[in-house]
């Protein structure tokens, strides 16, 4: 398999739940991926250095992977402020990957202390003062958690020194150029504006009542399936917009509507265009979409 020199990965954490770590650990092709890389440090995998050795900031690393929300002061790893450790390795590393929404934008833990907690390079969608210094090395992989295949794609592209097209928030376009809506198994119901009649049904779209943010959330959850098998919307759970700088919004299981009209439009779609199509699509009663897909007889 891997013949060239292995790239050194350093995975550091700040304020986190370890969700990205465990999501990564559940990657079915982990063995293949790891044959090309070696971990200088990883939060759960056995690695050659202790966190205290890592915290001194002197080890070699090619790619720095950051997990967790960031604060300048008051959070330590290996008895050293994470801001010191992150900065030391951000300077040394050739590439920085912010793994997860916390490390990228601040995420869920930002809600506890919004003024002092942020992502490492972005604060929500705003650039922090660190942006200028590190922007050229940065790949953002928001998601709560990240999908292991997203990280794997970035690592392999970096290994092969191939360019990764990114957007203004440094997210790879291959992963975030589409919305979570793309590939959703409920797309026919969205086309014909048929809402799900409640939770626990295969039928119906979750955008109208159940709070689904899929049409305006960037991500490839319905193209690159979770655990190689499914996704939230496939199993009838609304998309909560977890890849977005605004995550987590409020009232996550219900759609904010104004007189029945969804308050947030599908990404980039003018409201007038959307409402015109909606009005027309809703005018038709299509029997197939009113029926159960499977009927069990006894």
């Amino acid at each position: 398999m891997a013949s060239q020199k292995k790239l050194k990965l350093l995975w550091l954490q700040s304020i986190t739940c370890n969700g990205n770590t465990h999501s990564f650990l559940n990657y079915p092709d982990l063995a293949t991926l790891l044959s090309y890389f070696e971990f200088v440090y990883h939060p759960v995998i056995e690695t050659p250095y202790t966190i205290e050795e890592v915290a001194k900031g002197k080890l070699e690393c090619d790619i720095l992977i950051l997990e967790g929300s960031f604060r300048e002061e008051g959070f330590t790893r290996g008895r050293v402020e994470v801001s010191k450790i992150f900065t030391a390795y951000a300077k040394r590393a050739k590439h920085i990957i912010s793994a997860g929404t916390c490390a990228t934008f601040g995420g869920i833990f930002k809600a506890y202390d919004p003024e002092y907690i942020s992502g490492f390079i972005f604060d929500g969608e705003e650039r922090t003062a660190r942006y200028e210094t590190y922007a050229s090395k940065l790949i953002s992989l928001p998601g709560c958690p990240i999908h292991p295949k997203w990280l794997s794609y970035v690592l392999m592209m970096l290994l092969k020194e191939k360019p990764i097209p990114i957007d203004e928030l440094h997210r790879p376009q291959e992963l975030y150029g589409i919305t979570v809506h793309t590939g959703c198994t409920r797309n026919e119901y969205f086309e014909w504006k048929i809402d799900s009649k409640g939770f626990g049904l295969k039928e119906g779209c979750l955008f109208y009542e159940q709070g689904c943010q899929g049409p305006y959330t960037r991500g490839s959850c319905n193209k690159i399936l979770w655990n190689d098998t499914s996704s939230k919307t496939i199993v009838g759970t609304p998309c909560f917009g977890c890849t977005e700088p605004s995550f987590p919004k409020r009232a996550l299981y219900s759609t904010k509507t104004n007189m029945g009209i969804p308050a947030t439009m599908p990404l980039g779609v003018p409201r007038r265009a959307y409402l015109t199509v909606t009005g027309i699509a809703k005018s038709f009663k299509i029997k197939r979409f009113e029926e159960r897909i499977i009927t069990y007889d006894h």
């Binding site: 007189m259 009209i261 409201r271 007038r272 409402l275 015109t276 009005g279 027309i280 809703k282 005018s283 038709f284």
Partner: peptide, 15 residues
């Protein structure tokens, strides 16, 4: 059917 022919004005009322 429904709003197909009147959507020009219904859409504006929705907005």
């Amino acid at each position: 059917e429904g709003m197909t022919c009147v959507s020009g004005f219904v859409t504006e009322i929705m907005i």
